[in-house]
C-alpha cells in the first residue's frame, strides 16, 4: 500500500511537471509568434525579446513556474505592441498639429 502511494505521488508530480513544462513551452511559442507579428508591423517593444529569452532560460534550468510567468508576460507585451500598431495605424493623424 505504501509503495502504491509513493508511486502515485511520483506519477502525479511527474505528470504535473510535464503539464506545466508543456504549457510554458506553448506560451513561449505563442509569444514568439506574436512578437514576429509585432516586428512585421514595425512596433516591437525592446523588452519582449528579453522576457522570451528569460522564459527559455527558466525552462532550461527547470524553473517551470517562473518560465510560465515570464512567457505570459512576453505574450501580453507582444499582444499589446500589436494593439499599439493597429491603433497607431488608424489614429496617428490625431497627433498632427492643426
Amino acid at each position: 500500500m505504501k509503495t502504491i502511494k509513493v508511486f502515485l505521488t511520483v506519477a502525479i508530480y511527474l505528470f504535473s511537471s510535464m503539464v506545466i513544462a508543456n504549457s510554458a513551452v506553448k506560451t513561449i511559442e505563442a509569444a514568439e509568434l506574436a512578437r514576429a507579428e509585432a516586428i512585421e508591423l514595425g512596433f516591437e517593444w525592446s523588452t519582449t525579446v528579453k522576457l522570451i529569452e528569460q522564459a527559455k532560460a527558466s525552462v532550461e534550468s527547470g524553473d517551470l513556474k517562473e518560465a510560465e510567468k515570464l512567457a505570459n508576460l512576453a505574450l501580453t507585451e507582444a499582444n499589446n505592441s500589436i494593439k499599439q500598431a493597429k491603433y497607431a495605424d488608424n489614429n496617428w493623424q490625431d497627433n498632427v498639429p492643426n
Binding site: 512596433f43 517593444w45 525592446s46 507585451e77 499599439q84 497607431a88 496617428w92 490625431d94 497627433n95 498639429p97
Partner: peptide, 22 residues
C-alpha cells in the same frame, strides 16, 4: 516618415511628436 513621426511606439507609448512637439 510623417506617420512614423506621429505614431506612438514602445512600451512607454511615446511618439517622436510627443517629446519633440507636444
Amino acid at each position: 516618415g510623417k506617420k512614423f513621426y506621429y505614431s506612438k511606439r514602445g512600451q512607454l507609448n511615446f511618439s517622436c511628436a510627443d517629446c519633440h512637439l507636444k
